[in-house]
Structures are given as structure tokens and as C-alpha cells.
Amino acid sequence: MKHYPLLTFLGSGNMAYAIIQGLLKSGYPASQIIACNKSNIVRRQALQAVGINTNFANKEAVKRAEVVVLAVKPQMMAEVCAELADIDFSHKSVISIAAGVSVARLEQLLPTATNIVRSMPNTPSLIGEGMTGLFAKKSVNSTACRFAEELMSAVGKCYWVEQEQQINHIIAITGSSPAYFFHFMEAMQQSAIQMGFSETDARLLVQQAAVGAAKLVEANPNIPLATLRENVTSKGGTTAQALAVFEQKQLAQTVDQAMWAAIHRAEEMEQQL
């Protein structure tokens, strides 16, 4: 019989809630999940409705847990962990989904925690289509790593990085990038509206083109993205003319600069937290 560790979520915001929903869909028993959220009564009620225990205070919930998921806001991490600092974490796994909080910082906040996995999910996790970056020091045991991957696989796909600094790269590539795509789609929608389409129709046209393009990429993993682009681009045609404008405006360089700006901000946040 499969063992389901007692799992405590500190914080049950949108991302934690999505992970919990994904776990339940994958067969994880609700009786083995505790969720702590002091401020959001509506969220607590929603979790209680599906059998999640929300009645424990943070400290008691962590004491009971085999695995603790730190799902609080980064700026609240020190305050939340201060209450837990005297708990023995030596036989517990800790999974953090807080951006900008390094493993070294978590080790300072929880001195007995030795099995810490840092994760960086993105917002498509809310619909089970997430991409999560994972990092653990080589000293973290394989059981903790395997469980962290199973946990995040409940809401999408996972990718392990070898160096912690690469988590900041993951933030730029997958964590922040849904906003890049939304921004591009928003610009296309506004252009379509200016052409005379209604806001609703413009959104439908743009979003379906985006969904179709993404699915085409996913369905053809062995075809380079450049080739897929070229397949749409007839020499001297409309697509070629549009792409020429992107090239003239240095789209590739702009994207690269934007991604590095995200990385540098993530590095700054690590220093501040």
C-alpha cells in the first residue's frame, strides 16, 4: 500500500490551493493534508468542504507533518518561520514555493531543517498546466526530492536545476513568462479592436490562435521552433512582412533584455529577504 505522508501547507493562497486540488485529483487522501490560513475564511471553508483539515495553528500543524510546504508570501517567511524555529525538522521534508527565498536563508530560519527543496511554479499550475523549477542540495535525501517532484507534478511538469542560481533563470523563463505572453496577446487584441472587431471577438481570435500555436509546438517536439515559424512564413507574404517589423524593432533583443531584468530582480529579492 502506498504511503501518503502527512502534508502541511503553511499558507493556502491560489498556488497552494491549486496544488492541493491537483493532489486530490491524483488520489492523495484529504485526511493526510493540513492547510493553515489565518486570514482567508472563504478559502478555509472551501478546503474544509473537500475534507482538508484547517483547524490547526501553524506550530501544531508543522509538528504533526512529515512534509511541510512553505506557501506564504516571501516577505512573510521570516515572521512565519520564527514561530517554528524550535521545532525539530531533522525528520521532516520542507518544500518552499516562495520566490526569492534561498535555501541558505531557509536554513537560517529553520536551523534543524536538512531536507529542503526549493520550487518555482508558475500560474498555469492553477489549471494543471504548470511548469515548476526544482532545486535541492546534493545532501537532501532522495525521498524528499521524489516527493517534491510528485507534489508539483500534480499541477503540471517539473524541471530540476543543478545550481540554485538557475532558479532565478527559471523565474524569467517560466515563472514570469505567462505575463509576457498575456502582454503580447493584449497588444494583438487592442490592434484587432482598432480594426473594428468587438473586444469579445478580438479576444476569441487572439486566444485561439495562441492556444493553437502552443498545441502545435507541443504536438511536434522534434521540430525546432524556428522551423515551425518558417512553415507559416511564405516568402514575400503577409507573415514575412509582419516578422520583418518585429526584426526591425529588435524583438529578440528586447525579449532577452526583459528576461535578464527579471533575473536581476530575483537576485535582488534574495538579498533583501
Rank of each mutant, 00 (worst) to 15 (best):
A65V: 00
A57D: 11
I41T: 14
L106D: 08
D86C: 06
E66S: 12
I34S: 11
L47E: 09
G27F: 06
A98S: 10
C81S: 11
K38Q: 15
Q108A: 10
V94N: 05
A113E: 03
K25Y: 01
L106P: 12
F56W: 12
Q32M: 11
K63M: 14
N58K: 03
R44E: 12
Q75L: 04
I87N: 06
S31Q: 12
T54P: 12
N55V: 06
A71H: 03
V103M: 09
E83V: 10
G27Y: 10
V62G: 08
I95Y: 01
V80F: 08
P111S: 09
K59T: 12
D88F: 09
Y28R: 00
P111L: 04
P74I: 00
E107P: 10
E66T: 07
D86W: 05
C81V: 09
K59W: 06
N40T: 06
A78N: 11
V42N: 13
V72P: 05
N40H: 12
A57L: 12
A46N: 11
S31P: 00
K63D: 08
T112D: 09
A61R: 02
A113L: 01
C36P: 07
R43N: 09
K63A: 15
P74N: 01
P29Y: 08
M77H: 10
A49G: 11
S39M: 00
L70P: 03
N40V: 02
I33Q: 06
I52W: 10
S102K: 02
Q45W: 06
Q75K: 13
Q48N: 15
N53F: 10
A46L: 11
V103P: 05
Q32P: 03
K92V: 08
G51W: 07
K73M: 08
V72S: 12
V80E: 05
A61K: 00
F56K: 11
G51C: 07
A30Q: 06
L47V: 02
Q48W: 07
S31E: 14
T112K: 09
T54E: 09
M76P: 00
Q45Y: 07
G51R: 02
E83R: 05
G100T: 02
T112F: 05
V80W: 06
S93A: 15
L24F: 11
A85D: 07
E60A: 14
L47C: 09
L84R: 05
E107T: 14
A46T: 07
C36R: 07
V42E: 14
A46E: 14
I97R: 03
I52T: 04
H91P: 00
T114N: 15
E83S: 15
V72K: 04
V42M: 08
E66Y: 10
E66M: 07
V50N: 12
D86G: 05
M76Y: 13
L84M: 02
V42C: 05
V50Q: 14
S102E: 03
C36M: 01
G51S: 07
V101T: 01
E83A: 15
A30W: 03
S102T: 14
A98L: 05
K63E: 15
D86S: 15
E66P: 10
I41C: 03
A99N: 07
Y28D: 03
Q48Y: 11
N37W: 09
E83Q: 14
A104W: 04
I33N: 08
S102L: 04
K92C: 04
